[in-house]
Design a protein around this nucleic acid. Structure first.
Lengths: 251, 251
DNA sequence: AACTTAATTTGTGTCGACAATATGCCAAGC
DNA sequence: GCTTGGCATATTGTCGACACAAATTAAGTT
């Protein structure tokens, strides 16, 4: 329950999960509903597709079949195609002319590229966060870490939640940076790609206790408004994960 | 003529500039052309729209009128809409449901956000470039700078070319980093946004001689394979530009 | 039996038409 | 004079149909 505290609205798991149709009007009929969320079918399809990809329901490399999905979602191909193009714009699918869209598939070296970028960008986020953070913010971070720790102690929590806790921490830091573009870039684009890669490789071994300690050090630096140190620690923190990947690559 | 040396293929100004229609087949007729570039109408429209936006033909904040553009481009609204969604995915336009797409408009603080990101990312690019660069690469960079300098000396060159030289330099550095994702992120996404901002503010005063000296220092560091220094210099280089912006913001 | 070629099927690209919503304009009322 | 309401228009959202390309299956020849 504490897990999606820092998640942006469109990231919270859709519990309502309407069985299938997200159409607001059956093709020919009128729409008697007065209350209706003013959202395009293409928008809904976009989010839905995105979730499907991130959760691995549409595995990396698989083709995105328009007629099939349009039937599944209960909409026509038009809005669906628009959703797919938007996904292409954020690099989650690749479109080959006359042959359709495939879900992007990352190899290790591509994942490493992303980690390099993430290292640089989250370092920046940390530096900015240290400049902006007040006592209240730091308290929030501590609380998050405490929850996270409790979950790890309980041990029987699914790995999913443990991982979610990790994401929460990074989300919150980036949000604290105050740089909206940076938030969008990391949280809306890059994190998705990494999640996708983890799904693909069914998760590399976690190292919770070590990561946990590093998180605490980072908050310490932010609390002390030491931007330089915070940046350094975060970069090192992510660099560790990256080097784990590199080692896997070499072996 | 040396100016688009480092530009990726889709950045080179479309000189052919086919008068208007990019349709490959008049709606009902056959297509007698055997030789035809296998590219979707939506793809062409995407590039064309993107260029129009970057060049300022579609000024920031202006509405993207579907019927008008579809007539201008000689295609139907379907492919055009797909192109617009793709632009939305890379954040060049904003779509408001039931109200259409507007070209994105950056204010100064948003531009500063982007500069912060760019600073971090190009610093990374420089560090990586220093690790990869060999003598040949460095020679290429020197040559680029020499051309650039010659243009500045000539003085009567349009500012356009002078600016292009600056972009070329940064393109080449990022390319040298060897990180394809980083290249795409900077050159395909962020640079466009900054170009757009410059169009919007009709270009802040240039400082060619200073920037030029800094470029040389950066190449020196890369040549010496001193990644740390190269990163530092590039970050400072971009930070200078950013702080110019900040000063403008305060005044 | 294997290979090439023809036919069928599946899927993508494009269009035009219609419904739903927003936008602009004009008149009526305070 | 200004605001408010309602009408006409323009624009967006969605759909179904069709043309073309790719993939798959079937057929025919050596």
């Amino acid at each position: 329950m504490p897990s999606n505290a820092a998640l942006p609205p469109d990231k919270v798991p859709d519990n309502l999960d309407s069985p299938d149709s997200l159409a607001r009007k059956p093709p020919g009929k009128r729409t008697p509903d007065k209350i209706q969320i003013t959202q395009t079918l293409a928008d809904s399809a976009f989010e839905r597709l995105r979730n499907a990809i991130i959760k691995g329901e549409l595995p990396p490399g698989s083709k995105v079949n328009e007629p099939l999905l349009s039937k599944q979602y209960g909409i026509s191909r038009g809005p669906l195609r628009e959703a797919i193009r938007r996904l292409a714009g954020s690099k989650l699918v690749e479109i080959k002319p006359n042959s359709g869209a495939k879900v992007i598939s990352l190899n290790k070296s591509q994942a490493i590229e992303i980690y390099q970028i993430r290292e640089s960008l989250e370092g920046l986020a940390c530096r900015l966060a240290a400049a902006h953070a007040n006592a209240e913010h730091c308290h929030g971070l501590r609380e998050l870490l405490a929850n996270h720790e409790a979950q790890i102690q309980a041990e029987n929590w699914a790995q999913y939640y443990q991982e979610a806790g990790d994401w929460d921490f990074h989300y919150q830091i980036v949000e604290l940076s105050g740089n909206a573009r940076l938030f969008s870039l990391l949280c809306d684009d890059l994190y998705d790609l990494l999640r996708l890669y983890r799904v693909q490789t069914s998760g590399q071994p976690q190292r919770p206790e070590r990561a946990f300690k590093e998180h605490h050090q980072i908050v310490d630096a932010i609390e002390a408004n030491d931007g330089e140190l915070a940046e350094l620690l975060m970069r090192r923190h992510i660099s560790n994960a990256r080097q784990t990947l590199v080692r896997q690559l070499e072996s």
